[in-house]
Amino acid sequence: MKKNILGILGLFIFIFIFTAYYSEPFLSAYNMQNLIKWSSLYAIMGIGVAFVIITGGIDLSIGSVIGLVASLMALAIKKGWDPNFAVVMLLGLSLGIGLIHGLLITKVKLQPFVVTLCGLLVYRGISRWMTDNQTMQYPGTDKLDSLFSGKVLMGSFGLPAPLFFLIVVAILAAIFLNRTIWGRYLFALGNNEDGARYSGIETDRLKIVAYVICSFLAGLSGLLFAYELDSVQPAQTGEFYELYAIAAAVLGGCSLRGGQGTILGVIIAAAVIRLLRNSINLLGISTHLEYAIIGMVILCGVAADEIIKRVMARRRTAQVTTARK
């Protein structure tokens, strides 16, 4: 199931070299730290949604889950809860949200798009209602602050905390997808759900697991974003992030038809998206063009990927026919 990630890697290297050539400070330690930090944050969300996309589903509620977790964290601190307890509870809440999504999709047989679109609205609404829509901060939680947004110094280079979260998440996700039977089942059901069921795979249970993983990683991202920004606006924090996450997953080689995807691809794709933003700022391109550029690059990336795949498939068919002759 290993998919070619050379295309996206090439794109990353191209933009990287291009920016480094035209912007001298691009390679500075400070900028690299920032790039790593933001890429890690986006990649964690992207990995989450990749699981769902591999099953052939979609999760549009990621941004709202991020907003909800960030808001409730601030609220919990304000109400004087033990912050560590709050973190555990909120991660638990994220798992619960994923479970509900999964159950609605597999047992009630609603479409993932509908379920998570409603989730998007509901969680955003709850965030705003619970917090009275007030901007809030995270005072008096220095330990969590350094856990979620601190830096580990390597000489003068500070590795941002989200990177370590990403490393752990990525390794676990890659092991799950490529080394465990459930990962294999996930690919199989994404490719052909009936075929997987006829082979004795409990497709419903696995789909639920995918949605649980996705929401859990969204919740974790919520905490990371919260402490990175030290501030939460219940109406805005995390808005549209699901689209960046989905973009990263798709650009990273996940097919929305299901059954395909690699963790490494998603990470590189998330980095490409952040790199583009960084590059737009450093090269002094108008901020108004940012969305247009990101959109075009993703489109080109996905199109190139599709073409490469088709050429390879044709070559393979040709091989088989000659082999048969």
Partner: peptide, 9 residues
């Protein structure tokens, strides 16, 4: 195709 195999595997 529909039930017996996962055709892209």
């Amino acid at each position: 195709k529909q039930h017996g195999l996962v055709s892209e595997m």
